[in-house]
């Protein structure tokens, strides 16, 4: 059992170290090629979503994956989470191949995915109890309380999700993912469904939480500012089909970072310009290919 309870009090006790490796990951969605489909004239070709992704993620780094829409970012994250199987290739953590979902990876979903019939505390407790079934109730309660405080939701423990705003829901989602003390935190456009002001606020929160509790984080995003504010490395993907990695950028800004001061860091504008150029080129190509289709 991981010492998740003492984690808050003694953060240096057992830092989770995870070296994530992706080797030759491809995902092909099979097309309709059966006899019945041929008779009904509804055959379709297999669709290669992502092809040949190789990526090394150093322990305790914050990595953002950014790319044009429909480039298979979420597919890649689902493969890392184990919710979807790669057609070829291998995901491994610290050299161990992983092919199924597991509590070594905490996932924050874009649509929050909170259980509506559970309160804030119960949603987090459900995760902790699932991962640590033999843990005592008192210890579980204290972990749940710690993470509710960490994301700033003290006072809302007994509320149900339908009584929360989108930003509060996602904070529960983040607390739930962190409370199981995963080695890797996977976030799939976690702020995509939020308005701009709430999004900025939660990005600052993520930066604050990450300073308190460093983990390996993979963040899927399509916001350049978000990636620059939060990441150590930014993985830029090419457009699909057969999307791949175009370039990996280092973001050398010192931490803790502050949104207001971000553009003061040397190299900020160059990085931003490079990303904008890449993304607008890819996005234009995507749009043009759609028009011609």
């Amino acid at each position: 059992m991981q010492s998740s309870a003492s984690k808050m009090a003694l953060p240096s006790l057992e830092p989770p170290v995870a070296h994530l490796t992706l080797q030759g990951i491809s995902k092909v969605f099979p097309g309709r090629t059966g006899t019945v489909d041929k008779l009904l004239r509804r055959t379709s070709k297999p669709f290669v979503a992502i092809a040949d992704i190789d990526l090394e993620v150093e322990p305790n780094t914050f990595v953002s994956i950014i790319g044009p829409s429909g480039c298979g970012k979420s597919t890649l994250l689902n493969i890392i989470a184990g919710l979807s199987q790669p057609t070829t290739g291998q995901v491994s953590i610290n050299g161990q191949p992983v092919s199924a979902p597991g509590p070594d990876r905490g996932v924050v979903f874009q649509n929050y995915a909170l259980m509506p019939w559970m309160t804030v505390a119960e949603n987090i407790d459900f995760a902790v109890e699932t991962v640590y079934p033999s843990m005592g109730i008192a210890q579980r309660k204290s972990i749940v309380q710690d993470y509710i405080c960490l994301v700033g939701l003290r006072g809302a423990e007994a509320k149900h999700p339908h009584e929360l705003s989108g930003g509060m829901k996602q904070r529960v989602g983040i607390a739930r993912a962190l409370a199981i003390n995963p080695q890797i935190l996977l976030m799939d456009e976690p702020f995509g469904a939020l308005d701009a002001l709430t999004r900025g606020f939660l990005q600052d929160e993520i930066e604050r939480i990450w300073e308190q509790e460093r983990k390996t984080v993979i963040l899927i995003t399509h916001s350049i500012e978000e990636a620059l504010l939060l990441s150590d490395k930014i993985v830029m993907m090419t457009r699909g089909p057969a999307a791949g990695i175009a370039q990996v950028l280092d973001v050398p800004f010192p931490r803790p970072r502050r949104r207001e001061e971000l553009d003061q860091y040397p190299g900020y504008h160059e990085l931003k310009a490079a990303m904008e150029q890449h993304l607008s080129y890819e996005t234009r190509a995507v749009e043009e290919s759609r028009v011609r289709k």
């Binding site: 184990g82 996932v107 649509n111 995915a113 459900f126 699932t130 991962v131 739930r176």
Partner: peptide, 14 residues
């Protein structure tokens, strides 16, 4: 059942 709820449970290894 909303697949999102099932995904949550699966990622926790329930």
């Amino acid at each position: 059942v909303d697949p999102a709820y099932l995904n949550v449970a699966h990622t926790l290894g329930a």
